[in-house]
Measured scan of single mutants.
Amino acid sequence: TFVEFNGKKVEYPTPEAAEKAAKKLAKKLNLKVTKKNGNYKLE
């Protein structure tokens, strides 16, 4: 499962880990999380 932000793509071993990381990053970077095709994107 990938988390995409600032043009970077980071892969996580589980969807749970990706979701957790996405939410944490979104909060830190003041972005919102969108889920697309099972992957997460911060914008």
Results as ranks from 00 to 15, higher is better:
1 T>F: 15
1 T>S: 12
1 T>N: 12
1 T>I: 13
1 T>A: 12
1 T>H: 13
1 T>Q: 05
2 F>L: 08
2 F>D: 02
2 F>W: 14
2 F>E: 04
2 F>R: 04
2 F>S: 07
2 F>A: 05
3 V>P: 00
3 V>Y: 03
3 V>Q: 00
3 V>N: 01
4 E>Y: 11
4 E>M: 08
4 E>G: 02
4 E>N: 04
5 F>G: 01
5 F>K: 01
5 F>V: 07
6 N>L: 14
6 N>F: 14
6 N>A: 11
6 N>G: 10
6 N>H: 12
6 N>D: 09
7 G>V: 01
7 G>Y: 05
7 G>W: 04
7 G>A: 05
7 G>S: 05
7 G>E: 05
7 G>K: 06
8 K>P: 01
8 K>N: 12
8 K>T: 11
8 K>I: 14
8 K>M: 13
8 K>S: 09
9 K>S: 11
9 K>W: 12
9 K>Y: 12
10 V>H: 10
10 V>I: 14
11 E>W: 15
11 E>L: 15
11 E>S: 13
12 Y>C: 04
12 Y>Q: 00
12 Y>H: 04
13 P>G: 09
13 P>V: 07
13 P>K: 11
13 P>H: 09
13 P>W: 06
13 P>T: 09
14 T>E: 04
14 T>F: 04
14 T>L: 02
14 T>Q: 03
14 T>I: 03
14 T>V: 03
14 T>W: 03
15 P>Y: 05
15 P>A: 13
15 P>G: 07
15 P>R: 12
16 E>W: 11
16 E>L: 10
16 E>M: 12
16 E>I: 09
16 E>A: 11
16 E>Q: 13
17 A>P: 01
17 A>E: 13
17 A>D: 10
17 A>T: 07
17 A>F: 05
18 A>C: 04
18 A>I: 01
18 A>Q: 01
18 A>L: 01
18 A>N: 00
19 E>W: 15
19 E>P: 00
19 E>A: 10
19 E>C: 08
19 E>D: 07
19 E>N: 07
19 E>I: 07
20 K>R: 14
20 K>Y: 12
21 A>Y: 08
21 A>D: 04
21 A>E: 06
21 A>K: 02
21 A>H: 05
21 A>C: 08
21 A>P: 00
22 A>F: 02
22 A>V: 09
22 A>W: 02
22 A>T: 03
22 A>P: 00
22 A>Q: 01
22 A>E: 00
22 A>R: 01
23 K>M: 15
24 K>P: 00
24 K>E: 15
24 K>Y: 15
24 K>N: 12
25 L>M: 09
25 L>I: 11
25 L>A: 05
26 A>F: 01
26 A>M: 04
26 A>Q: 03
26 A>K: 02
27 K>H: 11
27 K>L: 13
27 K>Q: 13
27 K>V: 10
27 K>F: 10
27 K>D: 11
28 K>T: 10
28 K>P: 01
28 K>Y: 11
28 K>S: 09
28 K>I: 12
28 K>M: 13
29 L>Q: 05
29 L>H: 13
29 L>R: 05
29 L>M: 09
30 N>W: 05
31 L>Y: 04
31 L>M: 13
31 L>W: 03
31 L>I: 05
32 K>Y: 08
32 K>E: 06
32 K>D: 04
33 V>W: 07
33 V>S: 02
33 V>N: 01
34 T>N: 07
34 T>A: 07
34 T>E: 08
34 T>S: 10
34 T>F: 09
34 T>I: 14
35 K>H: 10
35 K>D: 06
35 K>V: 15
35 K>N: 10
35 K>I: 15
35 K>Y: 15
35 K>T: 10
36 K>F: 15
36 K>Y: 15
36 K>M: 14
36 K>P: 06
37 N>F: 07
37 N>H: 08
37 N>V: 04
37 N>D: 15
37 N>R: 06
38 G>C: 07
38 G>A: 04
38 G>H: 05
38 G>R: 05
38 G>T: 03
38 G>E: 06
39 N>W: 09
39 N>A: 11
39 N>M: 12
40 Y>P: 02
40 Y>C: 03
40 Y>N: 02
40 Y>K: 02
40 Y>E: 01
41 K>F: 15
41 K>L: 15
41 K>H: 15
41 K>D: 04
41 K>I: 15
41 K>C: 11
42 L>M: 04
42 L>F: 04
42 L>W: 01
42 L>G: 01
43 E>H: 10
43 E>A: 07
43 E>K: 05
43 E>C: 10
43 E>M: 09
43 E>G: 06
